[in-house]
Amino acid sequence: MTQFLNKINQLNSKINQPEITRQVAEINQIIAYLNCQKILTQAPNRLGLLPDESEAILQRVGASKAPTLKVLNQLLNSVRQFLSINYGLWSLPNLQTVQLLKQELHVNSALEIMAGNAYWSQALTAVGVKTIASDSLEWAKTSSTGSKPVMQVVDLDAAAAIKAFPKVDLILCSWAPNFTTSDLLAVRAWKQYNPKSHLLFIGEKDGATNSAAFWHEIKLHKSPQLRKVNQSFLSYDFINEQIFEIEHEI
């Protein structure tokens, strides 16, 4: 962890350009917040450089610094990977987004399934939503971060948790794996045990998260309320991360 931060700060001092310095400061702030188990106030701005941005910087600092800039940009684009390895955190919650979820969807209680280290549960709790975090905890057996949840996690798989806690207003799943159909099993359990609640999945459509069968079979509910929530949750890297709601069938 320290090595990543030291490297990115050292390279930033060599390039010394305001648009990169802003990004590096934001990364330092994210890590400082996580180390104190605090939640970001709002989503980070975009990290990493587009090709034209990189070219413009090179014109200012000189071609001799191209290797330095390339390595620095790789690090800027590796923040999500860094967070997953060091914190068991794939999706970065923020207070603005969870406050909007509470307000726009009229949420007072929530269940997070496949919660991992329960960062989204922590964020929902911080804005006054009574939240239960649940996970099968299988991943924790082989992960160095598996013993570092930020709040208590109930040992239940997604479908079992939905059955066990059927009276919540919101069921939330962040970054369901793309190599199982546990996401579809969760949807089926939701339809059976708590179909009046909001069922949200955070991830990338037809991309890094959820099974191919999930994206093929489910129907998404698009609403002005969720659009407003997503405006506070713009992805900070090349993964098109969004919040999706499953369409109600009742």
Rank of each mutant, 00 (worst) to 15 (best):
D155R: 14
L156W: 02
A189L: 05
K141I: 06
T209F: 02
A159W: 08
A212P: 05
A140V: 07
V168W: 02
Q122T: 02
A176N: 01
A186P: 03
S147W: 04
A140W: 07
N178R: 12
A186W: 03
N210Y: 07
A133H: 04
D206P: 01
K130C: 03
Y193R: 06
T125R: 13
H216F: 10
I132K: 04
L199P: 05
F165E: 00
V168Q: 14
Y193W: 14
A133C: 04
H198K: 13
D155W: 03
T125E: 11
M151R: 13
H216M: 11
W175N: 10
F214T: 03
F201R: 02
K191V: 03
S197G: 09
T181K: 15
L124R: 04
S136P: 02
N194R: 09
P177R: 09
G128Q: 08
E217V: 09
T145R: 00
V127E: 02
L172P: 03
R188I: 09
A159T: 07
T145G: 01
Q152V: 10
T145F: 11
S144H: 13
M151F: 04
A176S: 15
F201G: 08
W215V: 08
S143K: 13
L137Y: 04
I171Q: 05
A212R: 13
S121Q: 00
D183R: 04
W139V: 07
W139E: 07
P177K: 10
A126N: 13
V187F: 01
D155C: 13
L172Y: 15
G146C: 12
T131V: 06
G207V: 08
P149A: 06
I202K: 00
K167R: 13
D169T: 03
D157C: 09
P177S: 15
S174P: 09
A161S: 10
A126D: 13
A159G: 08
S174N: 09
S121I: 00
W120P: 01
H216K: 15
Q122V: 00
W175Q: 00
S144F: 11
L184C: 09
T131N: 04
V129M: 03
R188C: 05
A159Q: 09
D169G: 09
S147I: 11
E138I: 15
W175D: 11
